[in-house]
Design a protein around this nucleic acid. Structure first.
Length: 281
DNA sequence: ACTGGCTCCTGAGGGC
DNA sequence: TGCCCTCAGGAGCCAG
């Protein structure tokens, strides 16, 4: 590894959130909540005071995902969970020792506990009775990366006239969800697009490449994530957030795997961005 | 309508 | 060894 230029490879991005969903669903869906303990309610939004009363006795019907939000679906509403940048959900045996920053514990039946762990408390856990899609946290979100409406035409049209760096453009949840800082750099490198290029100056053809790249990078991470599913039921250690082989992220000064030129790091919109000066234009 | 900057928070890492 | 300083990052919010 070359010199580090910021960044944290442990930030849950969309593949990690989806892997979390797949990991915990089979263990808790269909089960009844027997107890809820909140040890720290000061997350990005406060955990509601009555969350225990709201959830206790309810049966979890499904765990869905929209963007990086996990949606725990119940008869009369939805628990919306976001992992922020240091959050994780784990399922443990009830007697497992609580760790520092285990903020919320939801017990299913007698033995199983779902614990929300989040040192930096940028995550959130809120309750809504309305349809999640109309909730203020979700109602402005753009398409998922695999939606039919995520097309070159859509991106090209949305970017028309905009001077914003294309990296910030694709990280904007109103344009498309789930492209965080790490995968934005990786996708742009794969598509050969310079991260600082104005969004309005990216051709439709290159947006087509970018869409393919975003999907490929996310799918690759999801595949790797599939191999870590077992970690979600371990009682020790982290849930195993995974780094697929990153081509540029965090590799400042290291040779580009395509052409050998040293990878550069530049800050765009307060975020570290990694790119190859030769492969990306 | 856009855009950039600020904010929340903790832990990791560098410098001395 | 240890302390202090800096800084990352998701995403909402706000001001220009």
């Amino acid at each position: 590894m070359g010199s580090w230029c910021g960044g944290a490879a442990d930030v849950p991005e969309l593949p990690e959130v989806e892997t979390t969903r797949r990991g915990i669903s089979p263990l808790v869906v269909g089960r009844k909540i027997s107890k809820v303990s909140v040890r720290e309610r000061r997350l990005r939004q406060p955990v509601p005071r009555n969350i225990a009363a709201t959830l206790t006795g309810q049966i979890l019907l499904a765990v869905e995902r929209r963007s990086k939000y996990l949606l725990f679906c119940f008869d009369n509403g939805t628990l919306i969970v976001h992992l922020g940048m240091s959050g994780s959900l784990r399922i443990v045996e009830a007697q497992t020792t609580l760790r520092k920053h285990d903020h919320v514990e939801i017990r299913f039946g007698d033995h199983l506990c779902l614990r929300l762990h989040d040192p930096r408390r940028f995550g959130l856990m809120v309750w809504t009775r309305e349809s999640p899609s109309t909730h203020a946290l979700l109602n402005h979100l753009g398409p998922e990366p695999w939606d039919e409406e995520f097309t070159p035409e859509y991106l090209h049209e949305s970017a028309r006239g905009r001077k914003l760096a294309v990296k910030n453009f694709i990280m904007d949840g109103r344009i498309v969800v789930g492209v965080g800082n790490i995968y934005a750099s990786e996708s742009l490198h794969r598509a050969g697009i310079h991260p600082s290029r104005a969004a309005g100056r990216v051709s439709k053809a290159r947006f087509r490449d970018l869409i393919t790249s975003v999907q490929a990078v996310l799918e690759e991470a999801l595949t790797v994530g599939g191999t870590t599913l077992r970690d979600f039921v371990k009682s020790d250690g982290e849930p195993g957030y995974f780094a697929l082989e990153l081509k540029v992220y965090g590799r400042t000064g290291d040779p580009c795997r395509g052409c050998g030129a040293p990878i550069r790091c530049v800050v765009i919109g307060q975020r570290s961005s990694f790119y190859c000066p030769l492969c990306q234009r």
